[in-house]
Design a binder for these strands. Structure first.
Lengths: 345, 345
DNA sequence: GTGAAAGCGCTAACAT
DNA sequence: ATGTTAGCGCTTTCAC
């Protein structure tokens, strides 16, 4: 491995000059610059991170934290976000240190090692994490940015899904196809993202003048896994069998819904239409393919890295909130009721 | 952040002494040691990585490379391996730098940045990767270890699944339940892991004296995705409808098999038994749940990290090959034919 | 058993 | 426009 000294010798300049050339300072003559760059190429020189770090008192690393639950989700949701972050980090010459924490992280637990050892310049937190870890990290006085999680205070830059618009879009899509009895299936409606999707749903219903009693149209489970979707739709149809369409707050639950309906021989979309949220379809190839609201996961990862870079450059950077927009993807799990020929009673 | 100087001042010793205490050198008196350790605690001192790295000429990082295809697989297979590696790395005070490469990586592409910048002490390669990247990395003269991939040469330590035993176990499980017409479904049988599973299958068939012609029992697709499983079983049943059990070379394909059989109204396990390989999460939510061969993914990650640590400590470490053993998990997708009441013809 | 000092590769303030 | 030099935090050799 060649060092700055080797380059200096090769180009017959001082190491300071080499450093200046590397950093593209404009007070170096074009000629010297060229000579130095030639030497750099020839020796395949890459500045040592360690040297740089020592003098700059920066690590060049960003920590990326999420719960193991989220990391191991069978749909590549957070992994896609991570990929976006890792990709964007390259543009800023940062490295990402990925670590998971237990989803039941406790105040007594140690924060991730890279924080203890101050081996990161900032921390990105992806998805819902226990509040205890946030207060832990705050003690270390590190810049923090969030993605897909409402931070506990307004102090932090954050990238969020535009859940309200998404919830509205999904619902309006159903309404446009002439559905009036639209059920909503939630998993922990207290979770901000879920609640916003619900708000979107409600707003769309209100705008369309569709009056409904929540008791008969909404089922809330305490988690958003497949089995919860399965149970939720079961309950929903017990309390209300005029339902013609179901909006599940995420695809995992929607998959449970589909499973239940398939089992009962209820045809999708002929008997009941289903729409989800997240668009994990592309990764799962479901049967039938599920209409959903696409969330730009990769882009979210990019955006949060940008916010972090901003924050690192300028400690007083506005604590920006970014709402990434979503897009409805129709794959045929919703029927247009205006086209349906009524069955004889 | 406190430095070694602060600790030295606090404990009224030289920085050299602090360093020796930190490294548990035994030529320091117990008393001094105690005083220094107290100061370390008091100041919450953690040695700076950057300082250490500079002098040791080591980065303290290990690169972890896999293709984006693999990282984004909907079943958390490689993510679990990564988690094991990351966890074990903590014991050796290493950090893991995770990066993906395109699955169509080409000689013209740049190797991962952490290699160019020499920001890792070694590289772990997980799963099948294009050979071109291996030869690229070899140029940088970095220690390499593999997990779940047959390296192109014997020079490397590697952690592999005991696919032959697994293939035998799955097949023998079927045989014990009195199946004789057992189909094998592969995706790229040229892939060493798949081929070994196939060898296990064949050996078990041979041992049991079950003669069969490959043409009628094996279908090979060129990939192991769900749709390939779907297509494979379709073909298989066209050429041979005496099949009572199907051994799919991995769960992804098995899921495709289940999908096809469900669609055709062929009952599992009453009409046809199915067994897979890998034991991925998705099996559980499958209907019916899939019997499979469990692969200890997390442990594989741990093992490969151990090999890497070995290699780093002792450049001439034996190039160990570790075969991790697998375990049959029965979830009821296999029927015991001895219990089956024959239908009247 | 402990300390002084050199030096790892780099940046930046200062000198020329 | 370019060079000299101090110093970032640490480890390690060599004195004492």
């Amino acid at each position: 491995m060649s060092t700055i000294k080797d380059v200096a010798k090769e180009a017959k300049v001082s190491i300071a000059t080499v450093s200046l050339v590397v950093h593209k300072h404009n007070r170096i003559s074009a000629e010297t610059s060229k000579r130095v760059n030639k030497a750099i190429k020839k020796l395949n020189y890459h500045p040592s991170r360690s040297g740089r770090r020592l003098v700059s008192q920066k690590t060049g690393n960003i920590g990326f934290i999420l719960t193991d639950d989220h990391f191991l989700r069978s749909e590549p949701f957070y992994t896609r976000i991570f990929l976006g972050t890792e990709f964007e980090a390259r543009n800023y010459e940062y490295y990402i240190l990925l670590t998971t924490i237990p989803s039941n992280y406790d105040v007594k637990d140690h924060p991730p090692r890279f924080i203890l050892e101050k081996n990161v310049d900032g921390v990105i937190i992806a998805g819902k994490v226990p509040v205890s870890i946030i207060s832990q990290i705050e003690k270390y006085n590190l810049p923090i940015a969030f993605v897909d999680f409402y931070p506990p205070s307004n102090e932090y830059p954050v990238v969020l899904i535009d859940n309200i618009s998404g919830g509205m879009a999904a619902t309006q899509f159903l309404i446009k196809k002439n559905h009036k009895n639209i059920g909503f299936i939630a998993g922990d409606i207290g979770h901000p993202s879920i609640y916003d999707r619900f708000r979107g749903y409600k707003m769309a219903m209100d705008y369309a003048g569709l009056d409904f009693s929540e008791l008969n149209y909404i089922v809330d489970e305490n988690y958003t896994a497949r089995e919860n979707g399965y149970n939720a739709v079961k309950k929903l149809l017990e309390i209300n069998n005029d339902i013609t369409a179901i909006f599940a707050c995420n695809d995992a639950m929607a998959i449970g819904v589909v499973q239940f309906l398939n089992e009962k021989g209820i045809s999708i979309p002929n008997d009941i239409s289903v729409i989800g949220f997240d668009d994990v379809e592309a990764d799962l190839s479901l049967d039938p393919p599920l209409s959903s609201v696409r969330v730009p996961k990769y882009e979210m990862g990019i955006e949060v890295m940008k916010l972090m870079a901003d924050l690192l450059k300028n400690k007083d950077a506005t604590k920006k909130k970014i709402l990434v927009s979503v897009e409805l993807i129709d794959r045929g799990s919703v029927m247009d009721l205006t086209l349906k020929i009524p069955m004889p009673a």
